[in-house]
Design a protein around this nucleic acid. Structure first.
Lengths: 128, 128
DNA sequence: GCGGGATATTGACGAACGTCGATGCTCAGT
DNA sequence: ACTGAGCATCGACGTTCGTCAATATCCCGC
């Protein structure tokens, strides 16, 4: 697996790692491992991870992601996850605010679409 | 970024994706995106992600990871995170049970060491 | 503009979580 | 053995979270 400098830059700016003092023996990335992150960065990252850390939201995200066009409306999600409509809307809102989904209203339907960059962004954080 | 088949196999076995019916137009990985995950898999993955989804635990993990030998004892972690010793022990236990840290007692000290595979395992889940 | 369908918001409730002080446990040195 | 240091566990507290029923909002077709 090769990781180029662009992936790193995305993370570096997000974590504002401006003064890297750790030994530069690694190629790139893994901001979490290079240098202790600050309190604010930790809180922001925790919010993002907390959006994923729920079985219902993981299933919703997975259903949307595996739908054609990586897109689905709320009415198609209620029955598969077995939760009430307000609860599904609640979870979709959290996923959207965290950047994992985007929302587009067409008619009376609300279509949620996967934002793959958000997933890869989190993944790069955890990759050595 | 190239992802080989071995990374995929690791995830496939973990999610027991035995009957992949989704179109095989993608090379590999991203079990979350290929096919809707089941309830049990979602709960297990949520437990793992929930272990990361806390500012104190992210900071602890980051401090341990950036220590020499990717290892640190509890007494070295209390002051940097600014929490009580019982709270630090509590968080370290959660991170250890989730597989992100390992614990080794030497004398009266308990040394926690980073388990990088756990991080890459989660990252592969989220990578397209 | 009215009625009905799809979705979002509100309010409420129980469960889970993060935190701490107090206490228990284990090991090293005396 | 006794003592102190390092760490884990326990019990308790306030907060956050996930969930639902009820209600509000938006939009389309008549």
């Amino acid at each position: 697996m090769t990781v180029n400098i662009d992936y790193c830059r995305c993370m570096v700016t997000m974590l504002e790692v401006t003064d890297i003092t750790a030994p530069a023996d690694e190629v790139c990335c893994a901001a979490l491992v290079k240098k202790p992150i600050g309190q604010q960065d930790a809180e922001q990252l925790a919010v993002t991870l907390k959006a994923l850390a729920d079985p219902a939201r993981l299933r919703l995200l997975s259903i949307v992601a595996s739908s054609q066009g990586q897109e689905a409306c709320v009415c198609d999600l209620i029955e598969p996850v077995g939760l009430s409509q307000p609860t599904v809307s609640h979870h979709l809102k959290i996923l959207t605010e965290a950047g994992f989904l985007s929302r587009a209203k067409r008619g009376t339907w609300a279509y949620y679409r996967l934002q793959p960059e958000a997933l890869t962004g989190v993944a790069d954080f955890l990759t050595i």
